[in-house]
Design a protein around this nucleic acid. Structure first.
Lengths: 154, 154
DNA sequence: CTAATTCCTCCAGCGACTAGAGGAGCAAGC
DNA sequence: GCTTGCTCCTCTAGTCGCTGGAGGAATTAG
């Protein structure tokens, strides 16, 4: 039963079907997220179905905002189906909490931006609410503790 | 009337009162967001009150997630109070729309993560909902058009 | 056989910082 | 004066997750 010649795919095909760009696929290989596939005689990467699955997993996890390191852990877990899934659960829970924090922060941000935009009288800059609020933090309703100073924007 | 000796602040003091870290202040100077202040005899930066105000403006704008380039424009506008504030208004509106998009995306994401976490039976990995959903994109309720492929996470 | 396309590697860059090395200035206490 | 310890200086390199380009080899279509 050494048949089934194993479909092989070029990196371009893999990119097309997975929606992950070619340089990104090579990057994932470089950082050890995706195994180095065998090469053709001409030195080109030849991927198999398992690689496709793995890349789909990665892509999906990235879409859901998991960090590369978290994905590494999740992939390791996936390879050992008998282990407890507590670790995977914890990673997903962490991510959920982070997303909830983000939404809360962005909602406060939205309110503040609305206040800026609605208050703008469309006159000249000297009396512009947008500039005014930016200049005077005291006027602002959007305050956060100094816990996560750089997490607002994104 | 050449009095009022102009209070001077060291970079450390400025950092303390503004909440912006010392290297970040130097970085802002390097990229031309903050003017290069005069130096003391010993070569140290000596900031005045106007610099403090400018930095507070920058910090606040960064907190609200404006990009450096947008802040550059806003600062230029602030310096010319007779101009129309349409540009400032547009920047704030853009930002607001972006934030709204982010919130929508994150809300969908949150739902998907909840589905993962709630479905997890806390058994072993082989039947873990978290891994399962990540592996099979078809099962996932969280789909977005390919418009902004990298904006999910943050 | 040629031309177009795809692939290869390597290196540089993005944004917005952050961290560290190695050295100089400065204020306070002895 | 001298030492201690803090702050400051410049410069370089690293972070994260890619993205893009140069320059060249391999494959495919006509």
């Amino acid at each position: 039963m050494a048949k089934a010649p194993k479909a092989q795919f070029s990196i371009g095909e893999v990119a097309q079907t997975s929606g992950v760009k070619v340089p990104t696929i090579r990057y994932y290989e470089e950082i050890g997220l995706l195994p180095s596939p065998p090469r053709t005689d001409g030195g080109r990467r030849a991927y198999g179905a398992e690689d496709m699955r793995r890349l789909a997993f990665i892509r999906h996890a990235r879409e859901l905002g998991f960090e590369i390191d978290a994905i590494r852990t999740l992939l390791r877990l996936q390879d050992e189906p008998d282990q407890s899934c507590a670790a995977a659960d914890a990673i997903a829970r962490d991510r959920l909490m982070e997303v909830e924090r983000r939404i809360a922060s962005l909602t406060a941000l939205k309110a503040e931006l609305e206040r800026m935009v609605e208050g703008c009288s469309h006159g000249h800059v000297g009396e512009c609410r947008v500039i005014e609020i930016l200049a005077d933090h005291g006027e602002c309703r959007f305050h956060e503790g100094p816990a996560e100073p750089a997490a607002f924007g994104q």
